[in-house]
């Protein structure tokens, strides 16, 4: 299995551990991720105003590049990039006039016709590789590590455009984590928003939003929370220092990328996974669950 792969800005800089673990976990499953030549920033939000056609050019260019390179699929790890690219693709398929304008603007040899499928790695792992193959590969597995699967907004909504999972009762990441040997905990806020870019303007606005998710996962017994979005990871991780100040009884909860957990479950060396960059170090929890082998927290 071979796919063009879109890493995105954050995975190349702040979230290198996500990038590395995604590629390695994919490789362990026989999925080759070929980085899209000449990829560019997706824009980080899908433009929501009708007169903002130009902001579609950035994400569209990646779709064109995929098509030109002969790809029919663009695999994405970052949930936000996935959302923006997928919504852009959906929009262009539905609006041939805009597509025509963009094709004229981009001046590429082959006009884009909407033929590329934007897919998230979760989709590829669960549906192309299959849960059974993942289960077989999951040695040593996660040994019953209690994980809360967190989907956030970008993997789920708008449902008709994203079409990855049921937006009210998502389960694809839960299924994957269970196949890795995790004990997936049930908590009510899998699809609640963490605060997203509000943190840039006002961390105070994001705090109750992230707190709602983290505290519910904690109450459900989670030892770590898994995400596919670097912005969710940041908000949920970085804000915890403030949450500890604000809420006396708050218990820290490591926030990890689901691909980091895949790497661990597959017995890969997590040296480049960037655990040391997390604000809440996941290693003690992982070590306690016996998932990190002999590695002990500093």
């Amino acid at each position: 299995m071979r796919y063009f792969y879109f890493p995105g800005c954050t995975l190349e800089t702040k979230a290198v551990g996500f990038n590395r673990s995604a590629k390695e976990a994919a490789g362990a499953l026989g999925v080759e991720l070929v980085t899209l030549p000449e990829w560019n920033c997706c824009g980080a939000t899908f433009p929501l105003s009708t007169d903002n056609v130009l902001d579609l050019a950035g994400p569209a260019r990646n779709l064109v590049s995929t098509a030109e390179a002969g790809g029919d699929t663009l695999a994405v790890a970052c949930a936000t990039c996935f959302n923006v690219l997928r919504r852009t693709n959906h929009f262009l398929r539905k609006h041939p006039d805009t597509l025509e304008k963009l094709n004229a603007f981009l001046e590429r040899p082959q006009p884009y016709a909407g033929q590329v499928e934007v897919r998230h790695l979760l989709d590829i792992f669960v549906h192309d590789v299959g849960l059974e193959a993942i289960r077989r590969r999951a040695v040593p597995g996660l040994g019953g590590l209690r994980v809360a699967a967190y989907y956030g907004c970008m993997l789920l909504r708008p449902a008709d455009e994203i079409a990855l999972d049921d937006p009210e009762r998502p389960g694809i990441m839960d299924a994957l984590l269970a196949a890795l040997g995790a004990e997936v905990v049930d908590y009510p806020h899998r699809g609640e928003c963490c605060g997203a870019y509000l943190t840039v303007k006002s961390p105070e606005a994001s705090m109750p939003m992230s707190y709602r998710i983290l505290s519910a996962a904690g109450r459900a017994g989670a030892q770590v929370l898994a995400t596919a979005c670097p912005l969710c990871q940041f908000n949920l991780d970085w804000l915890q220092a403030r949450l500890r100040q604000q809420y006396a009884s708050y218990q820290p909860l490591p926030v990890m990328y689901f691909t980091q957990l895949m790497g661990l479950a597959f017995g890969l060396d997590p040296a480049g996974y960037g655990f040391e960059q997390h604000y809440v170090d996941p290693r003690p929890a992982l070590a306690q669950a016996g998932v990190l082998g002999g590695i002990r927290s500093p």
Binding site: T10, G43, A44, Y197, V200, L231
Partner: peptide
């Protein structure tokens, strides 16, 4: 809406790229 000069520089250094890009595009 957002004056970039008035943002908390220390915090900004921590933010992932997509947070800036999204925030600047919204504000």
């Amino acid at each position: 809406h957002l004056e970039i000069a008035r943002l908390d520089v220390q915090a900004l250094a921590e933010f992932p790229q997509q947070a800036f890009i999204a925030g600047f595009r919204k504000y």
